[in-house]
Amino acid sequence: MPPLGRLVIYTKKIDALVDFYCSHFGYQHLRIEGDRIVELRAPDGGASLLLHPASKGQKAGQSLIKLVFDVQDVPAFCEKAKERGLDFGPIHQADGYCFATAKDPSGNSVSVSSRAFVVSP
Rank of each mutant, 00 (worst) to 15 (best):
S55A: 14
Y27I: 00
G34Q: 00
D44Q: 15
S106T: 09
D70V: 00
L30S: 10
H92A: 15
L30D: 08
F77L: 14
D104G: 09
F99A: 09
A81N: 05
Q28Y: 06
H24L: 02
H29D: 11
L51T: 01
K59P: 02
Q58C: 00
H92K: 08
D19A: 04
G107Q: 02
V74R: 00
E39F: 06
S48Q: 09
C98R: 11
K82I: 00
H29R: 14
F77Q: 07
A102L: 12
R84N: 13
P43D: 01
K12I: 04
H24T: 05
V8A: 15
Q58L: 04
T101P: 00
V38N: 02
V112A: 04
F88L: 02
D73I: 03
Y97E: 03
F77R: 04
I65V: 11
D87Q: 14
A76R: 07
R31V: 10
V18H: 05
I65W: 15
D87M: 08
I32P: 06
R31N: 10
G85T: 13
E33H: 09
Q28W: 05
A100I: 07
K13A: 15
F25N: 00
L49K: 09
G26K: 02
V18P: 01
V68K: 09
F99T: 05
K103Y: 14
Y10L: 07
H29C: 12
G34E: 02
Y10C: 11
S111K: 03
A100L: 12
P90C: 01
F25M: 11
K12C: 05
A102F: 13
S23C: 15
F99P: 03
P105V: 06
Y10K: 05
N108K: 05
A102G: 00
I32L: 10
D35A: 10
V8T: 10
C22I: 01
D44W: 13
V112D: 03
Q72G: 03
C78L: 05
D35H: 09
P43V: 09
Q62D: 08
L17W: 13
F69S: 03
R84K: 14
G57V: 06
F88R: 12
Y21V: 02
A60G: 13
V110A: 08
F20T: 00
L40V: 01
R41T: 13
Q62H: 12
S113A: 12
K80E: 12
T11Q: 06
D35S: 05
H52D: 05
G96S: 09
H29T: 05
N108Q: 14
G89L: 02
P105I: 07
D19P: 00
G45D: 00
N108M: 12
A42F: 12
I37A: 03
